[in-house]
């Protein structure tokens, strides 16, 4: 089996692309998808090192990350629907009521 270094690099690249999506986009839906990409990048690292060490903990942690990601997507999208009903927009720069 391959050394995990390449997988860790791929994990970092996926996480970085997710960060770009979160900081550079205005569309709240795409920001939520970018968060999913970041969590997937983390999972790649967990699985790569876990299988390298022959330890099942990597898979268990990735499983927990997936659970949190599913919960986050459900709640995040519900908040998005509530916001759209109220403000008729999903542009996060227009949602600045709490901004001082």
């Amino acid at each position: 089996m391959m050394e995990p270094a390449a997988y860790l690099l791929l994990s970092g690249i996926l996480f970085g692309i997710g960060v770009v999506g979160v900081v550079a986009r205005k569309n709240a839906l795409i920001i939520l998808m970018s968060v999913e990409i970041m969590l997937n990048g983390v999972n790649v690292a967990f699985i790569a090192v876990g299988s390298h060490l022959g330890d099942v903990t990597g898979s268990v942690f990735a499983f927990m990350v997936m659970t949190v990601a599913a919960a986050e997507a459900a709640v995040g999208l519900a908040i998005l629907i509530a916001i759209y009903r109220l403000k008729e927009t999903i542009d996060i720069t227009e949602l600045n009521v709490l901004k001082w």
Partner: peptide
């Protein structure tokens, strides 16, 4: 922000 994300990728490349 995009620049910082690029640095993050570069950093992971150096570290791994």
């Amino acid at each position: 922000g995009v620049l910082a994300a690029g640095l993050l990728i570069l950093e992971s490349a150096v570290l791994t």
